[in-house]
Nucleic acid binder design. Sequence first.
DNA 1: CACAAACGCTAGCGCTGCTAGAGTTCCAAG
DNA 2: CTTGGAACTCTAGCAGCGCTAGCGTTTGTG
Lengths: 190, 190
Amino acid sequence: MSIQSRRERERAEREKLIITAARELAEAEGWEAVTTRRLAERVEYSQPVLYSHFKGKDAIMAAVAVEGCADLAVELRAARTAAPDARRAIAGVGAAYVAFADRHPALYDVMFNQAVPLPFATPQAPPALQAAFGELAEAVRPHAGDDDLGALTETFWAALHGLVTLMRGGRLPREHHELRLGLLLARFTG
Amino acid sequence: MSIQSRRERERAEREKLIITAARELAEAEGWEAVTTRRLAERVEYSQPVLYSHFKGKDAIMAAVAVEGCADLAVELRAARTAAPDARRAIAGVGAAYVAFADRHPALYDVMFNQAVPLPFATPQAPPALQAAFGELAEAVRPHAGDDDLGALTETFWAALHGLVTLMRGGRLPREHHELRLGLLLARFTG
DNA sequence: CACAAACGCTAGCGCTGCTAGAGTTCCAAG
DNA sequence: CTTGGAACTCTAGCAGCGCTAGCGTTTGTG
């Protein structure tokens, strides 16, 4: 029993090692630099070992995405609970969301841009993702009025996501960013 | 003179052929199916011919993106001018934008999602892109009040973009789509 | 007709994600 | 203490990718 459990523990540790290495590589050089060869070299195992843990590169990216969701949820919660009132709560959460995307572009990309094999808009979605969405919803709630909270939160999220991705893709000028964010918040706080 | 001009014309026709083939292939099977080999086969030339017209695959995608911008501008203009009042104008333009993205996912992707070597948020941006943005701005203008029209248009655009991309990535449930769009419009028409 | 320039081709480089099959290590039963 | 077998990791390789060097043909000109 003990031997088997030790093996399982070592396997889990190695899996965690792969995920961390993938994340670090991606955050340092972007996902196009994360190849199975480089990743294998980094964890000091051969390529096929990766495939004994994950079905493919996509699955590794999905695992990193889940990690990112947990981190995002923590930061959103901190921003929300630190705010003294509802108005500054939604503003703080919005700013925290944008700051997260700005600090972790590769992580954000795999979470919300790239196609990864993860269930999203279903009850089977990763708890970390649901937690992050829940933080957004709590920040939006006081400003929802009679509107459906879920749909309104989704809309607010989409707006933040659009701002973030268009700006990073060079489609929006960076200099208007704060102004745009302010306009968005004004429209969502009545 | 005539011989040279004929050659130039034929070159231009072939370039147009490449762009059209790339667009058709992408719209039919997605950009991951657009390889230089398949594209070359489709236009019935060898691979290196592509590189005598375009610097690389990215440049071909950029050319397709510019075409897409022109198409989008036309559709947005039609939606805006067909509306009887300002409220229905912005609603119509928003719906037209979303419909375009829905009908041409691959085209939309290369226009606003993927990294392509195109100047965007500058005066050097393709006229077609500026035209499309201009249509959005005209639809937003009556609802801008004292807010900066440019920044507000950018914000509205970002919100639409977020709705579109999150939904296609499976991050938002499709069934709430109309509801979300309605909530967004309500927030932008005061 | 001879020549030179323009042009498109074949072949190949270094890379990608992924996998078959060989070889090794390790634990358990005799 | 030995031995058989399962678990595991490795090397090597496949098909495909974007891209390019360099050869051979075609084409218009003096």
